[in-house]
């Protein structure tokens, strides 16, 4: 089968790439494996790879101890909520920038991106105080508002780059065909840009799901999402490897699974629409 030089080269590359890939993936794999071990097996020396007594005990214990599902639900609400809200605000803005560019469009876009460079610590205290005084502290609403705002520049930027790929003539055709602005956006632009919108959405769900500055600073117990749930394992529970692994696996599994099912769009989205 491996009859020529090309095939040998391919085999070599396959081995190399798989080794590197597995190496990079290993910490995740190891976490998942450890989550099924008993605490004793988890710290066994030498480490046990597959030959241990598989158990689900850690998962039930983690759920009982720190109510995983409530944190999971909080994460779902804030990441979906902020992404949908962000899209609703960003789609019209990106439409305007992509199809009715003015002299200052580039500047507005750059300015929006630059707000993303505003270090969160620069506005942490006022936001904390405003939230405390308005009762938004430790609420899902508050987190949705903050995450929408911090990810808005990225959503606008990504949608803008995707919209730019759509020929303006098609929107003009819709205009000639009697479409109002809203039907132009709803019936023509949105369906055409659906792959790009999906990529944007996926990336933002991940960014919001994993956001750990605001979610840690602005929540205590009630609205704490998975990032905070996991942070509570920093010590001394962190030394219980099996439980830490179970909690970690549960925190990252939803995103890993979502990523697995939406590979193509996600890969496109992960480049932030910035390279083609």
């Amino acid at each position: 089968m491996l009859s020529n030089k090309t095939d040998y080269r391919k085999l070599l590359m396959t081995l190399l790439a798989w080794s590197v890939g597995l190496l990079i993936f290993f910490p995740i794999l190891w976490t998942i494996l450890t989550s099924f071990k008993t605490e004793a097996d988890a710290i066994a020396s030498p480490p046990l790879f597959l030959s241990f007594d598989w158990t689900l005990e850690n998962y039930t214990e983690v759920q009982e101890r720190s109510n995983y599902f409530r944190h999971f639900w909080n994460s779902v609400v804030i990441s979906l909520g902020s992404t949908v809200l962000g899209l609703l605000i960003a789609i019209p803005a990106a439409w305007a920038m992509a199809f009715v560019p003015a002299k200052n469009t580039k500047n507005i876009l750059m300015w929006m991106l630059s707000t993303k460079m505003l270090p969160p610590v620069g506005v942490l205290i006022p936001i904390f105080l405003i939230f405390r005084d308005t009762g938004l502290l430790d609420t899902l609403t508050g987190l949705v508002i903050v995450l929408t705002l911090i990810n808005l520049p990225i959503i606008v930027w990504m949608l803008y780059t995707y919209f730019k790929e759509i020929p303006g003539e098609i929107l003009e055709a819709a205009r000639m065909d009697g479409a109002t602005l809203w039907s132009e956006i709803i019936h023509v632009l949105t369906p055409m840009a659906l792959p790009g919108i999906a990529s944007t959405m996926l990336l933002n769900i991940i960014l919001a799901w994993n956001e750990a500055f605001w979610t840690l600073s602005l929540t205590a117990a009630k609205a704490a999402p998975l990032t905070a749930f996991i942070a509570s394992y920093s010590s001394p529970e962190g030394l219980f490897y099996a439980k830490l692994s179970a909690a970690s696996t549960m925190a990252i599994a939803p995103i890993l699974i979502m990523g697995w099912f939406s590979q193509k769009q996600l890969v496109r989205g992960l480049t932030f629409g910035a390279v083609k």
Binding site: T6, R9, K10, M13, T14, A17, W18, V20, G21, L22, I24, F25, P27, I28, W30, T31, I206, W209, N210, A212, L216, L226, T227, A228, I230, A231, Y233, S234, G238, L244, S245, S248, A251, I252, I255, L256, G259, W260, Q263, V267, L270
Partner: peptide, 26 residues
């Protein structure tokens, strides 16, 4: 060119999905 390029790519991308608190603790 290699066999299983798609899977390798997923393996390599995976760390991006892990939230910072989890990866730091692990």
């Amino acid at each position: 060119p290699m066999w299983g390029q798609g899977i390798v790519r997923i393996l390599v991308i995976a760390p991006f999905f892990v939230m910072p608190t989890v990866s730091a603790l692990v």
